[in-house]
């Protein structure tokens, strides 16, 4: 089963996204900020990461940059999922190594479509 780490400081968003991903046959785990996600990736690197941008402790962009420096961290497919909709922000995320980008608010169709675009489905 494909594994996906859902990283978001909102428990509600984590719960909604995890439910959608479970319906799409993903095995999910959760982290509440970038540092928590780094710790979880060191223990068990997931196949995919659904990543919020603005979070306390470590934000999504810093997490992604650190992840991609790790040789193992080049492998997970990273899909940003954020309220940031500015073209410059999107470009910044792609340059840092994001594979796809979801603009909140999202629904199950959008997650499915974006995970298809990223080759995960």
């Amino acid at each position: 089963m494909t594994t996906c780490l859902v990283v978001d400081d909102s428990r509600m968003i984590r719960r909604v996204a995890s439910r959608i991903l479970k319906d799409l046959k993903f095995e999910t785990s959760e982290a509440e900020n970038g540092q928590d996600a780094i710790d979880k990736c060191r223990i068990d690197m997931p196949d995919a990461i659904l990543l919020d941008w603005n979070m306390p402790v470590m934000d999504g962009l810093d997490f992604l940059k650190e992840l991609r420096q790790d040789p193992e961290g080049k492998l997970p497919v990273v899909v940003f999922c954020t309220a940031e909709r500015d073209v410059l922000k999107i470009t910044q995320a792609l340059e840092a190594g994001a594979d796809e980008y979801i603009m909140k608010p999202f629904d199950s169709d959008i997650i499915e479509s974006k995970f298809q675009q990223a080759g995960l489905i």
Binding site: R85, V87, I90, T91, L94, E100, Y101, I102, M103, P105, F106, D107, D109, I110, S113, K114, Q117
Partner: peptide
């Protein structure tokens, strides 16, 4: 809309 462009369109094509 925000929803239209997130269905079937890769992010690279959007920008």
């Amino acid at each position: 809309s925000h929803f239209d462009v997130q269905r079937g369109l890769p992010i690279q094509d959007l920008i």
